[in-house]
Structures are given as structure tokens and as C-alpha cells.
């Protein structure tokens, strides 16, 4: 979802919706003629038919292409330093391991997970923290912010981080 253009998505949906509504009006008009709107011509010239076929093919190809490119932009590596003679890459799991350990003593946090993804060209980290019922949000957020500050030092880099504080799902999670 980091790669889709949200405004374009909505414009597209609105257009398709309007086209459908117009088509519905046209069909309804055929049943109960209210307006003078031409019906579909009975026979079309071969040229026109081939143009239609081409248009349909293009539509199908573009549609499939769009559907396929719906990559969520997720990746494993949160940090990579590379060169000709090799590289060092750090997985998102390392971040969640470190943060999880750091928040061990924070009761309000029941579990921590992290994934990396691309935003623009940069890798970013999404940290999901499950909070216990009635947790003090300030405690949770301050704790995680503290962990990330330390993480910045460990990674020697300030990685963009999205913290998502979720409610624990029903039931007790013994993740810690």
C-alpha cells in the first residue's frame, strides 16, 4: 500500500462508478424510454470491431498489470550497508527482538513485532505493539520511544519508524 496513489485510486473508483450509473440509466432508458438516446447499432463495421477488440485487450492487460503490482512493499531488511566486497544487512526481526527484550518489564505491553517496508526509496520500520486492556498510553508510547532512541544508537542510523499500538485480541497472549 505504500506504492499506490490514494487519490488516483479514489478518482478511478468514482469514474467506474459513474460509468456504471450512466450504463444503468441507458439500460433503464431502453426499458422505459424517457429520453432520446440511441441504442447500440445492430451491425458494426469490421474496422470498428477490431478497434473494440484492441481496446478490450489493452484494458485487460492494464488491469492485470495493476493487480499484479499490488505489492505491499514489505521486505525483510531494515538496514543495509553494501559495497563491492559484500554487505551487511539487518532484518526487521532484529529490531523486534531488541525492542521486545527492552520492554520485557513494561507490563502494559503484551507483545512486540516489527516488519520492514519501503517508503519511497528508504526502508522504514513498522513496530506493532499490543497493549493490555486499560493500559496507560503514555507509558507505552514513552517506553517504545525510549527503545527506538536506543535502537538508533545500535543501528547508527535514524530509521523512520511507525509505531502502531493495538489492543490485545481477545484472550491472553503469552508472548512474553
Amino acid at each position: 500500500m505504500t506504492r499506490t496513489n490514494r487519490l488516483l485510486n479514489r478518482v478511478f473508483l468514482a469514474l467506474v462508478g459513474l460509468v456504471l450509473i450512466a450504463a444503468a440509466a441507458w439500460i433503464g432508458n431502453r426499458a422505459y424510454p424517457l429520453l432520446e438516446i440511441p441504442a447500440l447499432p445492430g451491425t458494426l463495421s469490421a474496422d470498428l470491431l477490431w478497434i473494440i477488440v484492441a481496446a478490450c485487450a489493452v484494458l485487460i492487460v492494464l488491469s492485470i498489470a495493476w493487480i499484479v503490482t499490488r505489492g505491499r512493499g514489505r521486505q525483510q531488511t531494515v538496514l543495509r550497508v553494501g559495497g563491492d566486497d559484500g554487505s551487511v544487512a539487518i532484518d526487521a526481526r532484529v529490531a523486534s527482538d531488541l525492542i521486545s527484550e527492552d520492554l520485557k518489564s513494561v507490563n502494559d505491553v503484551s507483545s512486540v513485532s516489527a516488519t520492514a517496508f519501503r517508503v519511497g526509496r528508504e526502508p522504514a520500520l513498522e513496530v506493532r505493539v499490543d497493549a493490555r486492556r486499560g493500559a496507560d498510553l503514555r507509558t507505552v508510547i514513552t517506553s517504545v520511544t525510549g527503545s527506538i532512541d536506543e535502537l538508533d544508537a545500535v543501528f547508527e542510523k535514524r530509521i523512520p519508524v511507525l509505531l502502531h499500538v493495538r489492543g490485545s485480541s481477545s484472550g491472553v497472549r503469552l508472548t512474553k
Binding site: R10, V11, L13, A14, V16, G17, L18, V19, L20, I21, A22, A23, A24, A25, I27, G28, R30, A31, Y32
Partner: peptide, 25 residues
């Protein structure tokens, strides 16, 4: 009864169309 079919088709198209416009907005 061709009219019924037409109306049903029109109704379905209109419904989906409206839903899409709503989702867009």
C-alpha cells in the same frame, strides 16, 4: 419479459455504481 431483465440489469449496475462512488468519496 424483456423489460424485467432490463430493469434488473439497470438496477444492479446502478447499485454497484453507487457503491463505488460512495467508496470513492
Amino acid at each position: 419479459n424483456p423489460t424485467v431483465i432490463l430493469l434488473v440489469a439497470a438496477g444492479a449496475a446502478a447499485l454497484v455504481g453507487i457503491v463505488l462512488v460512495i467508496l470513492a468519496i
